[in-house]
Design a protein around this nucleic acid. Structure first.
Lengths: 316, 316
DNA sequence: ATGAAAGCGCTAACAA
DNA sequence: TTGTTAGCGCTTTCAT
């Protein structure tokens, strides 16, 4: 048995002809090694877990693809589970991931994730991604939401005559805070005051963006020719609202989004947006996880903020 | 040890107070059972594998979400691996899935998948999904590509004055065959001849659809006011080509797509398309897999073809 | 109602 | 260079 093991893993000494014989018989018998058994002995499943609140979300899955590509060379498999945004389900999945003994876990944070992490002390390497958890001392990676938002709004400031409005994200999603702050600070830096702020909530959804834009348009007390939508979905909804009200984009109102999901290139007008470095987020997350898994202590407790990139298209 | 096992699994007899004590100590110690060990004993990992050629594809992931939702109640975890369309990688992943001892495997077929399956006799339950493998005797589930295409083209026939053209899918992707055949048969059923067929290849991509539409527009020898794009991505590309050439949709040219990916609702004009029953595909696939895993012999070797649904929006 | 023992498939230490 | 043995963490007989 030991010799077979050595032959199959090409570890330790084994006579060339023995090796050949082992290989021959193995393939003849259709032998497929059992990873569970192997994992029990050497303590590593070569599996990374991904806990995601919605695997139908274009941005999320684009990032997961980055994780996939980054981890594949190391021989890791990805165990992906979708909580559908349900905190109870998220807890169960978190548990299951531990039972499965994944070597590391990537968490797309939701409003409930902080509690989950607080109640555990994790022997399991965990990295939080995309939406940060300010209260948690966990390694985190995301785009620089604040900087991206500022860049977006500064572009609007340059292109528009009137103070731009914003369609902000939901209160309970952490990424919407720095994006909103970026909007405010950009206005302030542009010499505008708090009175010039115009904030509607776009809820990070198509519908929310549509309705938020409608409210901005119907208000009509102030002139409006620029909108920063805090994510692309709401930007797309806003675009549609503009059209339904008979406005042209970018001629009448300019729009800048955030994320650079695939659909932004297909709509008309194509969307100017802040691109999240999806592949790099994945790469950095995997790096951190593997470091943690190999016992390294992550020195830097500050979240890693990767720069977004302003992509100019037709909408601004 | 045995008592603890019985307590934790609530199997067999165990005195209530013993059970309570076990639970208390378990939670105090932060005990998390090891699924690998459990799997070794009882032979099931409670894990389903998904082999996908592109996990950034909106349609695919929407179907995977269906699989996720359908399998979650049974307590299954999903192991998703992305081959990035690379046959070699696909083979490796197929192997890895077996080593991981998944209880069943869902395959999104690629041109190379047939060879993969032929060279294995599978003790592993496998279901092929979305794109069918006509030559393989494997259980398969997908939308009724042919019927959907016919419905799409029949709508165009009704709304248009001239014979509609089609932007077909790639030769080596099986789903494009029945879709093309549906186009042809619909034309024939509408009293048109082979001479009325106009086929360009849209390659199932945005770019391909764009270029294909451009070719149709530039040809200009025949009047064109209707196009069946064999998938939504190419339809989106076609939409853009129309706009860039100064045509209006649907006024000048009507377009119908296939799949109903999310973006079709956001573009302008929103896309009339054939909706794939993503959730049902997932549900049926999981059903088949669990039946196979429990040792049932699948009687019906014919692929299961679920009906698509014509969704009318603005483009036709 | 509980405990002792065997064994799932593998690897690693040790001996030969 | 190969074989023997122990043990990874669990479940399942079989005794008690």
């Amino acid at each position: 048995m030991a010799t077979v093991s050595r032959a199959l893993n090409k570890s330790g000494y084994v006579k060339p002809e023995t090796l050949a014989r082992v290989m021959a018989v193995a393939s003849e018998l259709g032998y497929v090694p059992n990873r569970q058994a192997r994992a029990m002995v050497n303590g590593s499943t070569q599996t990374l877990g991904i806990l995601i609140p919605d695997m139908d979300n274009a941005l999320f899955m684009r990032i997961v693809r980055g994780i996939n590509d980054a981890s594949y060379p190391y021989g890791y498999s990805l165990l992906i589970m979708d909580s559908r945004g349900n905190p109870e389900r998220e807890g169960k999945i978190f548990r299951t991931m531990q039972e499965l003994r994944v070597d590391g876990l990537v968490l797309f944070a939701t409003p409930g994730t902080a509690l989950l992490l607080d109640s555990f002390e994790y022997p399991l390497p965990v990295v939080v991604i995309d939406r940060l958890l300010p209260t948690c001392a966990v390694p985190q990676v995301s785009v620089d939401h604040y900087r991206g938002a500022r860049d977006a709004v500064e572009l609007l400031l340059k292109e528009c005559r009137h103070p731009p409005a914003t369609l902000a994200g939901p209160h309970d999603v952490t990424s919407s805070w720095p994006r909103l702050q970026g909007y405010r600070d950009a206005l302030r830096a542009g010499g505008l005051s708090q009175a010039d702020e115009r904030i509607e909530f776009g809820e990070y959804t198509y519908e929310g963006g549509y309705r938020g834009m409608m409210r901005l348009l119907n208000e009509g007390t102030r002139l409006l020719d620029g909108v920063f939508a805090a994510n692309d979905l709401s930007a797309l909804g806003a675009l549609r609202a503009l059209r339904d009200k008979g406005y042209q984009c970018p001629e009448d109102v300019r729009i800048v989004g955030f994320d650079d999901i695939e659909a932004t290139r297909y709509v008309y007008p194509s969307l100017t947006t802040i691109r999240q470095p999806m592949d790099e987020i994945g790469r950095v997350a995997v790096d951190m996880l593997l470091k943690l898994a190999s016992g390294d202590i992550i020195v830097d407790e500050e979240p890693v903020l990767l720069p977004g990139e302003l992509i100019r298209r037709e909408s601004c």
